[in-house]
Write a protein that binds this DNA or RNA. Sequence first.
DNA 1: TTGTAAGCGTTATCAC
DNA 2: GTGATAACGCTTACAA
Lengths: 332, 332
Amino acid sequence: MATLYDVCKKTGLSTATVSRVINGSDKVRETTRQRVQRAMKELNYRPNQAARMLAGKKTDTIGVIFPEINNGFYAQVLRGIDDATRESGLHLLTSFYHSPNELKGALQRLAAGGRTDALVLMNIGLSDQQIQSQIDDDFPIVLIGHSAETSTAFDVVGIDNAKGAYHAVRHLFELNRENLILLTGPADNFDSTQRLEGARMAFSDAGKDFSTVTLLEDDFTYEGGKRAMETFLSGKKPLLDAVFAFNDPMALGVLDALQEAGYSVPEDVAVIGFDDNEIARHIGMTTVHVPMRDVGYEAATLAIRRKDENTRHPSTITIATSLVKRRTTGET
Amino acid sequence: MATLYDVCKKTGLSTATVSRVINGSDKVRETTRQRVQRAMKELNYRPNQAARMLAGKKTDTIGVIFPEINNGFYAQVLRGIDDATRESGLHLLTSFYHSPNELKGALQRLAAGGRTDALVLMNIGLSDQQIQSQIDDDFPIVLIGHSAETSTAFDVVGIDNAKGAYHAVRHLFELNRENLILLTGPADNFDSTQRLEGARMAFSDAGKDFSTVTLLEDDFTYEGGKRAMETFLSGKKPLLDAVFAFNDPMALGVLDALQEAGYSVPEDVAVIGFDDNEIARHIGMTTVHVPMRDVGYEAATLAIRRKDENTRHPSTITIATSLVKRRTTGET
DNA sequence: TTGTAAGCGTTATCAC
DNA sequence: GTGATAACGCTTACAA
């Protein structure tokens, strides 16, 4: 592999000058620049990244830490992050974890030792404190889907849960559905809480009594959604003409439970989910679309900016959501 | 950030000795080792990776290049690669591309400049020659899903297309289906060709005449599958009791076309796909399962081994596939 | 078992 | 505009 020094020898210039043209400095005579570039091409010279990092104290890479990446949902986020980093000519160091311990290990390996310039953390269940304790104090970090609306220490990118839920409920009202079931996630889940709040607002804006709704709670899984619905339907005189499940897997469970119980969708019961995942799209389920690619893109952009000018206060970006009307609420 | 030198000062030892304990050499007295480790802990010392790379000429990172990562399918592969690299204490540098040009750029950025020790390339449509021209001659590369069974230059990890198709067809025979439709991918597609060969073998092993099958061809998409099926069904006297589509998206298209035409599955027509993607699992479609995580894991393992001992001939690993029987072939 | 010292390939600060 | 030269933080012969 050719080195900077080889280029110097070939051109008769110093390392300083050659380095300048590599880094696009304007303090180089045009003819000199061209001479250097030709030499680099002829030698097939590629700057050694390790040396650049060591001397320049920057890695030109962003680290990403994800929980397991089984579904296409996280893949979308990763895609957005990749788009942003590539546009800036940066690299992406990824790491997945399956346990809290692995997460801490990943944090240290990526943040310490100068392997990355900034970190994007997806959906991690760690407090600001816990994160801080693992890493250097002013290391740039961006959180996606933090468990609180904002963080006093880090940038946060989240989605507009409330607005999504608001529009979902309003759509149900427009369809003249009166007996709504809200199937929420775990009570201590931040997203679920926000979605519930959005739903409540839709009720009050419509002048309806929120206490008329049936609130069901489960664990955000297909099985949970199905189980919750079955239990409800097997009760005495179940009254319903619409279900709004707070994520798509639960909504799919609801759909199957409904079908097995002989209800038809959307005639008897309208169903709305939240996420807009691959299956929802395929079967034509009305749901709240969450633009995961955009979430990733914004998070990475934030990380990149902060690595360059780590001065400003932590900011929070909320990505808009939108209702996608499909078959399960009567759209054709 | 504390440096090696700080640890030396604190312990009164030389850089050589401290470096030895960092790298787990056994040529260090046990008491010394402990002294060093305590000092490192107290100083919260983390080796600077750039310096290690520069001095040691290895990066401890594997590079991965993927085509777009929209679906959960590639995500599985990535997951497998991550598992393997993490087990070996290595890092993962990922890069996605959306055009051939981006691919070449990615190849150079990851392989040149000593950013990675080895590369895993997923499903790239480049010839050995084209790859070689972009990178250093003996840079370790592992190909996943190469367009030919083997490569003379690189390691290849592929899936057992033929066996998967073989079992799919045999299953149809067991169900006494006689009028099979095979919906293949593009004729020049390697996977499709292999699957077709497997199907043909099932016919000859069963003593059946392969020329009795109806061969349809399309482009591996949902729309393509649906269109192909609709065209066939609208022909005069369509005769069929089973369809084997060579991937899941097309099979899903077939299913919808069948339904719209009033056929019932599996009573009138049995349907089998290939891939076992998320949607296939959800709707209960019989299909050939492709263990993508394993594919990724094996590929990464190969890459890791080759970076350490780049001597042996390129090898080819074929990952087994298996038929998953579900509702669309009458399984309950 | 431990220490000395020469790189590794850049960047960046001064001079000129 | 260009050139010396000192870092950057580590690994690794080679000596001791």
